[in-house]
Amino acid sequence: MNPIFSVRDITKFYGNQKGCEGVSFDLYPGEVLGIVGESGSGKSTLLNVISGQLEPDQGDVLFDTRHAGMVSTTAMAEPERRMLARTDWAYVHQNPRDGLRMAVSAGGNIGERLMNIGARHYGDIRETASGWMGRVELDTGRIDDRPSTFSGGMQQRLQIARNLVTGPRLIFMDEPTGGLDLSVQARLLDLLRNLVRELGLAVIIVTHDLAVVRMLAHRVMVMQRGQVVESGLADQVLDDPQHPYSQLLVSSILQV
């Protein structure tokens, strides 16, 4: 099996300030990679660079496109990259308000990506949107309601539906459970896990919540001061961390 996504020696500085340095990894279809580290460890910078929102100072990001195989996304022309971001990639924001159009109905939010790639049949778009609402366990009767009338957990599920409707193969997630109540987090994680299995999605999830990593991620990378200090199988890194910083992270989890 070939990787779907390959990150090679990515370095990004903000002036003299290091964002991230020398990060490399491969991601395979169906694989969930967790990136953990405290605030300022460079995990968000890394996510922004590899998802094409920031230009790296050095290194390359390759994606296995449907038509041309492995292609450098950093060298790609902007229209092509934006097209990728609307079709084969998805980005789930921590705050659903950043990933949804709050003034557009739930159905319109889900349908937008379809209309972006040329869907022009209202009935079909609506049926697909309704189907996806069901899949993320939202009441399909609320298809015409605006997201502002939804709870935080529902908004986050709507954001996921909106992102998955075009059948992306790679999903970037930035603290997807960050703003949610604990009770809602579990349900969202279960949903994500099932979708990952059913659709064979590759996921890169940035989080500081090690419980999320344990439940969702197959592999984990621990970042500190812009560098990856340890990476490996998620449960192995959590149960038998090798690097001093990973040990500190794991031993700092509060027990209930």
Binding site: R82, R101, I117, A119, R126, I143
Partner: peptide, 18 residues
């Protein structure tokens, strides 16, 4: 510039749905 006009149809979609 990039001919990304899906949003225009979102507006019409919203019209029909409401």
């Amino acid at each position: 510039a990039l001919e990304e006009y899906g949003l225009m149809h979102v507006k019409l979609y919203e019209d029909i749905s409401s």
